[in-house]
């Protein structure tokens, strides 16, 4: 009996040492994708089945775990439109309307496959718990479950390249495991200051058959700004930060 308990104790202690720590892995993925506080520019391209494109250029500034703001700088019809996320709170400011309005994470600010959560993405480890990790050889497959109902996608399946500890593909699913979209991470690029990450992200969705969206990254760098930048009152002035 004593021997059985000893064996159990050894097994219980030894098991965590060999298991992959999903939480730690996801945090590593987050840090490899972006510093905790940064600024960056993204070009969002919606491509229609006939090849027609519509492009948007978005400036983003993030601070800490839960503060992120975005500002559209092109095209002219969207210029000045800004979005703010403070934890679970999201607002949209449209220059014509002249005041910020509360929005939900699933609402689309520009149409197409992207929604607010894609544009104002916080760290994955902030929004998701790791439900399961599978070792697929060259990659890990992480199955993530949203911590709260405020997150746009209830479940994520994330394929992580072991060498770069960077995602190569993410499937976004509903609570009922219905696929909403698939995100492909491409073109690993050195942005400087130790940030090596995919420079383009492609998205397709079974809900928008034949349509594709591409997100390109530029001028991605660490930046610290005041907490007050991430407030409703500051939204009309976000352009002054860049």
């Amino acid at each position: 009996m004593k021997a059985l308990f000893s064996l159990l104790a050894v097994l219980l202690c030894a098991a965590p040492a060999y298991a992959i720590d999903g939480k730690q892995l996801l945090e590593q993925v987050d840090r490899n994708l972006a510093p905790e506080s940064y600024e960056l520019y993204r070009k969002l391209i919606n491509i229609e089945p006939d090849g027609r494109k519509k492009e948007f250029v978005l400036y983003t500034v993030k601070k800490g775990k839960d503060k992120i703001a975005g500002l559209f700088i092109a095209p002219a019809s969207e210029k000045g439109r800004s979005t703010l996320r403070l934890g679970d709170n999201m607002w949209l400011y449209i220059p014509n309307v002249g005041k910020p309005i509360r929005i939900t994470s699933l609402q689309s600010v520009i149409g197409g496959v992207f929604n607010n959560s894609d544009i104002l993405q916080l760290d994955y480890s902030e929004e998701y718990d790791v439900a399961k990790v599978e070792d697929l050889g060259k990659e890990y497959l992480l199955q993530l479950k949203a911590r709260t109902k405020t997150v746009a996608y209830d479940q994520l399946k994330m394929w992580v390249d072991k060498k770069n500890v960077s995602p190569t593909k993410i499937e976004c699913l509903t609570e009922a495991s219905m696929l909403i979209k698939t995100i492909y991470f491409k073109d690993i690029k050195d942005f400087g200051d130790g940030l090596v990450r995919p420079a383009s992200v492609e998205t397709d969705s079974p809900l928008y058959k034949g349509y594709k969206s591409v997100m390109l990254f530029a001028n991605f760098k660490k930046k610290e700004v005041a907490d007050e930048v991430f407030t409703l009152t500051f939204m009309p002035n976000i352009d002054s930060v860049r």
């Binding site: 520019y41 250029v57 400036y59 700088i73 383009s200 990254f217 530029a218």
Partner: peptide
Amino acid sequence: EFKFDPSEV
């Protein structure tokens, strides 16, 4: 097709 020139920003 997918070019993003930093001068654009």
